[in-house]
């Protein structure tokens, strides 16, 4: 379990070539992200996303186990009722790209690390339990909110989608409101 300790904040000098490089300037990263989003609008006429790829994957997996049920499930049917394989979906390929891009950037910046990100006072067990619980809750949030942080807040935010701005405000409101209760995990 020795490897499961949080990494120290990135501090690097020329002498420490194997230490992770510091993260990018937030405004530069934001401009880069914005240009990627803009290219999605220009090339595809749609924005970025993530949760949709999970929906396609679950729809496909369930169609292997219980094809009749999956096809009759209103939430999943639209992800199965596509020409070709359910995984030949735009967001599935985009998320595969996200994985590849993250590895590429992480390797080049020496930030690949088998670790658990958590506050100094939180145990690994608590952190992993909360990671699962948070993911579970957010799946319901994304399904009800018709998109996640990428598909609603980022994408809809840029094209001035009214629902996306409501979603974004509530997202930050919910996070700030709940932060105090889970501070032991992070602080």
């Amino acid at each position: 379990m020795a490897s499961l300790t949080p990494t120290e904040p990135a501090v690097t000098t020329e002498e420490h070539a194997f230490e992770p490089r510091p993260y990018a300037n937030p405004y530069l990263a934001g401009i880069g992200l914005g240009l990627v989003l803009l290219s999605a609008f220009v090339f595809m006429g749609r924005g970025l996303g993530a949760s949709g790829a999970f929906n396609s994957t679950i729809a496909w997996l369930l169609s292997l186990v219980a094809p009749g049920y999956a096809a009759s499930n209103e939430f999943l049917a639209r992800y199965l009722d596509v020409p070709g394989h359910p995984l030949k979906a735009w967001l599935v390929f985009e998320v595969l790209g996200v994985f590849a891009g993250a590895v590429l950037s992480g390797v080049l910046a020496k930030r690949m690390s088998r670790t658990v990100e958590k506050g100094p006072r939180a145990s690994v067990t608590l952190r992993l339990g909360f990671a699962f619980l948070g993911g579970f809750l957010m799946a319901f949030g994304a399904a009800l909110g018709r998109g996640c942080t990428s598909g609603q807040a980022l994408t809809g935010g840029a094209i001035l989608n009214a629902g996306s701005w409501i979603f974004m405000m509530c997202f930050f409101g919910g996070a700030y409101g709940a932060a105090w209760f889970v501070r032991r995990q992070w602080r």
Partner: peptide, 27 residues
């Protein structure tokens, strides 16, 4: 959905997109 996502964010530590990045870099 927004509120649920926000609450889930501080519990889980990621949103769906960033969790893929985290997983990809070994977390």
């Amino acid at each position: 959905g927004g509120l649920l996502m926000g609450v889930g964010f501080v519990i889980g530590g990621y949103c769906p997109g960033t969790s893929v990045v985290s997983m990809a870099t070994g977390r």
